[in-house]
């Protein structure tokens, strides 16, 4: 692993202004992302997990420049990309691709599969004529689509097949990083497993880095190298997969893990039931954002915002004031 990470995100912020009131005054902001930092190495999978509304998808779209960041920096191979003008992003666009959640709305219903997959190749002038055809066929083989799918329209395919078309499109320009925005959440369990296996095979084969945005911890545990847990626009814990799943540090991570369904009804479970809802990102709580729901809350949490600190385990950082979170009450 070289020293320069493939993707570096530094204190990324996205504040959506609320609709202005009648006199044009700004009423406030939705703090969708509030200082998110992480790095992603070549060929690595980093999963972003969290409840809905915590800013996972905004993070993906902001990195992709589908949404303009409010503040912070994004580097690709050490080159800053967040402040480059949109029409000079060609290199970044070629290397960073996206697979969306909904396999039905992510493909243009009036384009044939070959045009969908070929579009990025043509955009970057990577191939034309018979070479283009060859590349499209190779991509379809790679994602295990039958070749006669080429001249069909998206509505002729099932959800899993459509998602494979989406993956082929993301691979088309020879990308290094694919942002999977809930890429398997809309699929059936068996199809989900196939797509996940396909993604990890492709990763081995092509050395892809994946930024895997998901709320499905079972999938994440299977697929990922590292996991970042997000809560209300901030990363609260980031750790290696094994460390996170065996010794979670942050109380929120623990609550999330305890909520993962276990297929055995007789298995003993220590569910941590959190009280209340996620607070509004328009008016996030002071201090630690989790303090309104944390079972271990104490005075300091309400005033001082905890920073990501290393824990006793290597490669684990957590934003909690408690040095040693007490063991789960059983």
């Amino acid at each position: 692993m070289s020293n320069v990470p493939l993707l570096e995100v530094n204190a990324l912020k996205k504040h959506f202004p609320l609709k202005s009131d009648f006199f044009g005054g700004k009423k406030g902001f939705v703090y969708a992302l509030d200082g998110v930092s992480f790095t992603l190495a070549k060929g690595e999978t980093l999963s972003i997990v969290g409840e809905s509304g915590c800013g996972k998808s905004t993070l993906g779209k902001t990195i992709l420049r589908l949404i303009e960041p409010t503040d912070g920096e994004v580097y690709l191979d050490g080159e800053r990309v967040d402040n480059v003008s949109l029409n000079k992003l060609a290199n970044f666009r070629r290397r960073v691709q996206v697979v969306f959640q909904d396999p039905f709305s992510s493909l243009n219903p009036r384009q044939r599969v070959r045009d969908i997959i070929g579009e990025p190749i043509i955009n970057f002038g990577l191939a034309s004529g018979s070479e283009l055809e060859d590349r499209i066929v190779a991509l379809m083989d790679k994602v295990r689509l039958p070749r006669d799918a080429m001249h069909r329209f998206p509505h002729e395919f099932s959800g899993g097949q459509r998602q494979r078309i989406g993956i082929a499109r993301a691979l088309a320009p020879g990308s290094d990083l694919i942002i999977c925005d809930e890429a398997v959440s809309a699929l059936d369990v068996s199809v989900k497993a196939q797509i996940v296996n396909l993604l990890s095979d492709l990763q081995d084969e092509l050395g892809l880095a994946l930024l895997f945005i998901s709320h499905d911890l079972a999938i994440v545990e299977h697929l990922t190298h590292r996991v970042a847990v997000m809560y209300l626009g901030k990363i609260v814990e980031l750790a290696d997969r094994r460390t996170l799943f065996s010794t979670p540090h942050h109380p929120y991570t623990r609550a999330l893990l305890s909520a993962v369904p276990v297929p055995d009804p007789k298995a003993p479970r220590n569910r941590i039931i959190l009280k209340g809802d996620v607070p509004s990102p328009i008016n996030p709580p002071s201090g630690c954002r989790f303090h309104t729901r944390c079972p271990y809350v104490f005075d300091r949490c309400r005033v001082e915002e905890p920073l990501l600190r290393k824990t006793a385990h290597a490669g684990q950082v957590s934003a909690c004031h408690l040095d040693e979170v007490p063991p789960l009450a059983s």
């Binding site: 589908l66 070629r94 959640q101 493909l107 579009e119 990025p120 989406g166 499109r169 993301a170």
Partner: peptide, 12 residues
Amino acid sequence: QAYVEAAIASGT
């Protein structure tokens, strides 16, 4: 639509 965003992301 997601396919428009995907097209933007793939440099169209």
